[in-house]
Design a protein around this nucleic acid. Structure first.
Lengths: 173, 173
DNA sequence: ACAGCCATGTAACTTGTTACATGATTTT
DNA sequence: AAAATCATGTAACAAGTTACATGGCTGT
């Protein structure tokens, strides 16, 4: 869905063709998110199916044809709706780490502490990496990407500390 | 994939049938993650397709037949592999909030600050909710669920503060 | 009588993602 | 001569998810 919303937003500044949208997206998320070329066109055709965009084919002498996409009224409404609503999905983390740790706690698995240690080491390495990247980046927009990664990893590390502190109690009630 | 891994782990303590796996999972994640009944069986049949489990049909006089699932050797290897590797996906956040904020910053959209404000209000409300839930929960395992939500939301709130602080600079370079 | 639990499954749809295919132009 | 960029797309699969269907037993 993220790519779809990004395209919707990019199209508010004017009609664009697929390759342009890809470039715009990749310039913004360079390194963090490389989009496969094919995905651009599957995403756009699904947006068209949902009547969010229409396209017009433009012939070019020196280049392959391009297809200019324009937001429909529905598309404009969809952008407006997106901007007017907060994103909800973030506050109930249903991710693999929660499942892993929880299942192991439930099973009182002896592997539990080792798994925590392993994950913590991984996080610490990522943290060092992103901190380094942030420091060596001049672009303040780019720094915000790394910032987010850093803050999230720190939250997860803190959580692992809490989990570890609870293991003894949970295993010997 | 999370459900699949949970089932793999649950099956290490013995053969089980689908409904049992569903109950075990829902007991653990009650309120946070309600699994649709159908998903149990699609997940199990895909696991069977991938040779991670085999099943045996058991007739019961008083109840419908049940199918007992057992881990294969491949399945056991898969669990072991899962436990021995840290989860990687968490350290590059490619989520909708990042996309939303970034696209708006890129477009220098006047909606930007309003979107941040909206999202912050939403996070604050969630934070109050989860804090309340954590306080009124006796089960320490259950508290860890809310703990995770709380820590993640706090990290995202902090990030929004950083973003807001950068908006002025980014809009007037 | 009816709700709810036990127990299973299928069909269908969505999104994410990749491999593959085409072909011209520009840069090294 | 080769590599990168411009530009488009299709086919296919995996995974998440839901609606629907079946049917018996148990508790109120």
């Amino acid at each position: 869905m993220s790519l779809r919303f990004a395209f919707l937003a990019f199209l508010t500044t004017g009609a664009k063709h697929g390759y342009e949208l890809k470039s715009e997206f990749e310039d913004l998320f360079r390194g963090l998110w490389d989009v496969n070329a094919g995905q651009i066109y599957t995403t756009l055709s699904r947006m068209q199916r949902d009547a969010l965009v229409t396209n017009e084919r433009i012939a070019q002498d020196d280049r392959p044809d391009k297809k200019i996409y324009t937001l429909t009224e529905d598309g404009k409404r969809e952008v407006a709706r997106w901007l007017s609503e907060a994103i909800q999905e973030l506050d109930t983390p249903r991710d693999e780490l929660l499942v892993k740790v929880f299942v192991l706690l439930q099973l009182k698995s002896p592997a539990c502490l080792e798994v925590i240690r392993l994950q913590r080491n991984h996080f610490m390495a990522s943290l060092r990496e992103f901190t380094q990247l942030k420091l060596t980046t001049a672009d303040p927009l780019r720094q915000l990407i790394f910032d987010r990664a850093i803050l999230r990893i720190q939250a997860d590390l803190e959580w692992l500390d809490n989990v570890e502190a609870s293991v003894a109690t949970l295993f010997n009630p």
